[in-house]
Design a protein around this nucleic acid. Structure first.
Length: 174
DNA sequence: CGCAAGATTATT
DNA sequence: ATAATCTTGCGA
């Protein structure tokens, strides 16, 4: 199953920061939901102390060591789920955290809110998004926007990297 | 086995 | 600023 809009595996087999930025404006499909990705963060094992993969392929983080295009869902602070998409080739641990999604008129700002609204939890971990029409990313067209990059949120290490990417609406010409 | 920390959020 | 809430990974 694949449409011409369905992002292929090759899209995700690139450097995580690049994928994170390119994911802005793309459409996330989850069941009957569709939303525009508005905010992302990149995490990269080995050289990134903020990444879950920094300490090696632990049971939780091992999906980050697999090939790009798979989901990585984990529970944070005992009450919120976070949805990531694994990137880069197998053996190069990395993932993009989805922090913002516009679903119709609703703006889900925050990774926990996003998962709560969509109903994403650990049973949705380690799913191949390039092989499922009901859980995937589409490359739809939309109005132009700018990309703002900042340090990542909610971490205490790795603040030197500007790996958070936010969609900014283009200011109206006057 | 115990424990501290955590890629958050809503509330004070 | 802080509570809520529980999984994870580390050290003993």
């Amino acid at each position: 199953m694949s449409s011409n809009l369905h992002l292929p595996s090759s899209f995700f087999q690139r450097h995580v920061a690049e994928v994170a930025q390119d994911l802005l404006g793309k459409t996330l499909v989850f069941g009957s939901f569709e939303g525009i990705i508005t905010e992302t963060e990149a995490y990269r094992g080995l050289d990134d102390p903020a990444s879950h993969a920094f300490r090696g392929p632990t049971p939780r983080a091992k999906v980050m060591f697999g090939p790009g295009g798979f989901s990585y869902v984990y529970l944070i602070y005992g009450m919120y789920h976070c949805l990531n998409i694994v990137t880069e080739p197998e053996g190069s641990p990395s993932a993009v955290l989805l922090r913002g999604l516009k679903v119709g008129k609703l703006h889900l700002n925050g990774p926990g809110k996003l998962c709560t609204y969509l109903g994403i939890n650990k049973i949705h971990n380690q799913i191949n998004l390039c092989d499922s029409p009901s859980f995937c990313v589409l490359d739809k067209q939309h109005s132009p926007f700018q990309v703002l990059s900042t340090p990542r949120i909610g971490i205490k290490q790795g603040l030197d990297k500007a790996w958070r990417f936010v969609m900014r609406d283009l200011p109206l010409a006057s």
